[in-house]
Design a binder for these strands. Structure first.
Lengths: 127, 127
DNA sequence: CTTGACCTTCACATCAATGTGACGGTTGGA
DNA sequence: TCCAACCGTCACATTGATGTGAAGGTCAAG
């Protein structure tokens, strides 16, 4: 599919899809006329990238991390240098920290919302 | 304590602590001489801010969200407008999404690391 | 009193992630 | 044929989070 379609289907601006290519995170094929041609997989891929970027992961890390996220695996297993492995472990740990921070905060917010709701909305339910 | 001490204790650069004040996330008292004076709570507070920023949350949201993260609660419960409440709910939900994305990716990375380790390190353990 | 280690504000620089728009090519349908 | 709706690259603007440094105040120790 072309960039416009992928953009439609993912909600990600064309500009950003081009940026993802520029940074090496999502590289599409090219039609003879030079248009970017994305395969079906690119949809998930793009959304995954979006999610990671939104979660605060910088593009260069996303780029390093993405190859491990393709299920088929097995092929690229051999291509991992010790440095890459180290980086991945550090990344895994820092992600765990983020997850914990986010979870704690989210739960606190949820409790807060609950409390507010409960302490001043003991009203009957509508229609 | 003064900014240098807080910086030492949290590992957060002075510059950033001033920035947190500028954006209204962490406002210290002032000594008569104009120096910033942080209380003990500020340590946790600063670390929390750091964690949320690292997790990709923008400062204006951190600012909105922080008041709910103070345990004592109860006092500021009344100050929540419906708009704030709505914002908090949206934020809670988007945090949940982030957490899921991060968790999925982290687990995938962890699996990958495991696989690589297992497929080429069936070596005896050292010392 | 001077020095050094703090602190202040201000301001400019940088970097990554985005927005925006100019300018031009391709293509399919009226 | 011509227009509309795509696409391409290039490039500049912006925003948020930071780094860096200048110019000067405070204060305790020597």
């Amino acid at each position: 599919m072309r960039i416009g379609v992928l953009s439609e289907r993912t909600g990600i601006p064309r500009r950003m899809l081009r940026y993802y290519e520029e940074t090496g995170m999502l590289i599409p094929a090219r039609s003879p006329n030079g248009y970017r041609e994305y395969d079906e997989q690119s949809v998930d891929r793009a959304l995954q990238i979006r999610g990671l970027l939104d979660a605060g992961m910088p593009t260069r890390v996303v780029k390093q991390v993405l190859p491990c996220l393709k299920q088929p695996g097995a092929i690229h297993v051999l291509g991992a240098t010790p440095e890459t492995l180290g980086l991945l472990e550090r990344e895994r740990d820092s992600m765990s920290e983020r997850i914990e921070t986010l979870t704690r905060s989210r739960d606190a917010i949820a409790r807060y919302i609950d409390t507010v709701r409960r302490t001043r909305a003991p009203e009957p339910q509508e229609a």
